[in-house]
Design a protein around this nucleic acid. Structure first.
Lengths: 221, 221
DNA sequence: TAGATTGTTAATCGATTAACAATC
DNA sequence: TAGATTGTTAATCGATTAACAATC
């Protein structure tokens, strides 16, 4: 029977394994770069250093089928992934913290490809208030409520120092934010109905440090 | 028999499961914030929304033991994690691309806690060459070779646009770089002895978008 | 058609969890 | 000591991989 996944979708949402979702994001990144019309599971696998069976299995979760003997029609597969991730639906997000990172994010032009628009950036530092970051003026936190309602903001981006991250998050949740995109290098406590995606940028380099010390390549430190 | 992990370490390096390494980084983040002297697996688990058995299992990989009836001595456990990740050994890294993100990373003060020092930032845009980013002057790529040798640089940080990421990586590898910290939103092809850590910052928000559309909380889009 | 590639079921593998012994 | 908590073994669960049938 073809496309069980479509059927499953009818009764309650499928929960994608975390690892599968991560790989689907990688396929999304890879396929957006591809110039050809079709690609095989074999080729996707090779470029990502995984097994082709894994690729086929992952793709079977999607509302999309490849063509035996031909492969996957790239633009259709990208469409299915866009659907999965909702990149065609716009989410307005806000950034809290107008430091180097907050400003870098606010200036990032690629968000449009992911259905993200940064509608405001906040900070409480009087030196920063009123200054411009791209098209946006840095606002004080007292304007949170108004902005969140006006732009129906669900996602709050935490770019404040670790010390103030938790209280910033508490405030955002009180103001109705449903998901936290956390760039502060700390673990946040949130109610269970709130989503958190941690992007501990600096700490991610520790994986490289760890592996450099343990692989033949890196042994020569 | 106590501390099998220590024994195992003697014969060839243990390979930590990817998921375990990710959690160990979270413990590292969590424990650095803790003020008390001891903490139980129960409490760590609660704060991270995982099971205490998982915490004990993860910690059993380390060259460290907790105290029955008392818990884990926080500063000793942090030491063991620092050892695992090599945060006390300094790695000099370079940043390629002096855009918003590259500059934000170059300015980040927290790297010292992870044993990372940014020794140079590169760009080929004549407008940027010679300008200052914190203490650093933006250098042209022709200086790569000199800097990599002089500072024994193993890790190269990719902050260039997606279009130029692959050729930048090819160049870095030719110049002797062993590990790539990739912030470009593309999949890189590298020889198998080269390590890659992908930090596709913008694409990470897609997990939140996906879940917001599928959880009761977010349904009201 | 024959052959190549997908899709899916079944087997395997590895990670998580449960249970409990060790221990302070 | 008794009780609490770690450490470890065994059972379970879920994800990956292998095998192969479906299909164009």
């Amino acid at each position: 029977m073809k496309n069980m996944s479509v059927k499953k979708k009818r009764n309650g949402p499928i929960m994608f394994p975390k690892a599968t979702l991560e790989r689907l994001k990688m396929y999304h990144a890879l396929l957006q770069e591809e110039k050809s019309e079709y690609i095989s599971s074999e080729e996707i696998a090779r470029k990502l250093s995984i097994k082709p069976e894994q690729v086929r299995k992952d793709i079977s979760y999607l509302d999309y089928s490849g063509k035996p003997k031909v492969g996957y029609h790239i633009s259709s597969l990208v469409d299915a992934l866009d659907e999965l991730f909702g990149t065609k639906l716009r989410d307005n997000i806000i950034i809290i913290g107008a430091g180097h990172l907050g400003k870098a994010l606010a200036n990032y032009k690629g968000f449009v490809n992911f259905g993200i628009r940064v509608v405001a950036i906040f900070d409480n530092d009087p030196e920063k208030l009123g200054t411009y970051v791209g098209e946006l003026v840095v606002l004080p936190l007292k304007d949170l409520d108004r902005v969140i309602r006006r732009f129906n903001v669900k996602i709050g981006t935490i770019c404040v120092p670790g010390e103030s991250a938790q209280k910033t998050v508490d405030l955002l949740i009180k103001k109705g934010i449903k998901a936290i995109w956390n760039f502060a290098p700390v673990i946040l406590e949130v109610p269970e109905n709130i989503l958190v995606e941690n992007m501990d940028i600096a700490r991610s380099v520790l994986t490289l440090k760890h592996l450099l010390d343990r692989t033949p390549t890196g042994k020569i430190r």
